[in-house]
Design a protein around this nucleic acid. Structure first.
Lengths: 195, 195
DNA sequence: TTTATTTTTGAATAGTGATTCATTAATAAT
DNA sequence: ATTATTAATGAATCACTATTCAAAAATAAA
């Protein structure tokens, strides 16, 4: 018998995030991912079925991690709904601040997976969005939030806005600091543009 | 001598919008675009340098058209800044309502071009965004809009939100009607989620 | 008509890179 | 030690499709 050495699957995933981030998914070569991971090209196929499934795994882990963290915040009873929304926005920004390559992959390739209609991905993503929705619902019930807002619209609007901002930040982090973005997103979410 | 028959360039562009919309840019075959346009594969290369330049042309025309229309609204002096923002949002939604395939190409492939850093594209897009910015600036000067909003952040946020919503609309137009989206985007822009 | 010029064609080319698989290497069990 | 089993390798395969280009077709001019 022989046992697997090290964590090649983890190495490959981390390498893939880097390579996808710098070249985009379509231009990324499996041979390059293998090289960065320090394994042979063929080894990638020992751990993953194909190129697409590597991308899928990256997103699964991302949304999975976020979901767990957000769930805790969403259920913290001693915060008001507005404070919880704030904290949830913070969490999303924190994840991407920690790992800029992951941010780039997220903003550029999320479409790709949404189109492929992969259920594993969709489930995670929807569960993630539902958490935010629950908080908003509570805010409406308490009379804090405007009841004329459609929840489905709001959640996709917020996430789309954040995604686009992250994309511009990733292209030029100094010109476009993440903290300014974060503050403004919170303001816009709460008050819109009106005084 | 021989003169060109019909408007093959226009036919090819329209075919490309359809094919890009249904398969995505990367999976779209030139031979399929030619087939839909009713020309030979080789003819595509008589009118366009390569695949990428077809996509570029589509976006150039889209932003070019939008720019002209938005400029008129942005400079209409008898509308308040808020009314102008409203009208501008309407214009964007109108373009995509008229041509759903174009909406799909827009939401899925805009990233692609932004990354390629093509100046022809960037110029149009930035000019387009600047128009909205001018209106917001006026609103701030008049004391209508909150001065703590960063304009750069706001414009990317708004466009990103709209883009994401259009994407979901394009995937399921009945479940997610465009008019509801339009109304909610206006509300969220003005007031945020708070009452 | 005939010739010259330009358009159109689509089969052939050519580059690419994802994926496979026969082989080698390493470890566990006997 | 020896054998069995699984991991790891990377060169070769194979499919795919953007692009090219020599030939054919169409029209204008002579």
């Amino acid at each position: 018998m022989r046992t697997k050495e090290g964590n090649k699957d983890k190495d490959i995933l981390e390498a893939a995030v880097k390579v996808f981030a710098s070249n985009g998914y379509h231009k990324a070569k499996i041979s390059k991912i293998a090289e960065v991971a320090g394994v042979a090209t063929g080894s990638v196929y020992v751990y993953f079925d194909n190129k697409e499934s590597i991308l899928l795994k990256i997103f699964e882990q991302l949304w999975g991690k976020l979901f767990i963290e957000l769930k805790i915040v969403a259920e913290t009873q001693n915060l008001s709904p507005l404070e919880r929304i704030d904290a949830m926005i913070d969490l999303v920004f924190d994840v991407f601040t920690e790992n800029p390559s992951l941010a780039i992959v997220f903003v550029n390739e999320q479409n790709h997976l949404q189109q492929s209609n992969n259920s594993a991905f969709t489930n995670y993503y929807e569960k993630f969005l539902d958490l935010g929705e629950d908080v908003i619902k509570e805010g409406m019930k308490n009379g804090l939030f405007s009841p004329s807002i459609d929840l489905n619209v709001f959640r996709y609007y917020l996430l789309g806005g954040i995604r686009n901002l992250l994309q511009h930040w990733a292209q030029d982090p100094k010109e476009f600091p993440l903290n300014k973005i974060r503050q403004n997103v919170k303001l816009l979410t709460k008050h819109g543009i009106q005084k």
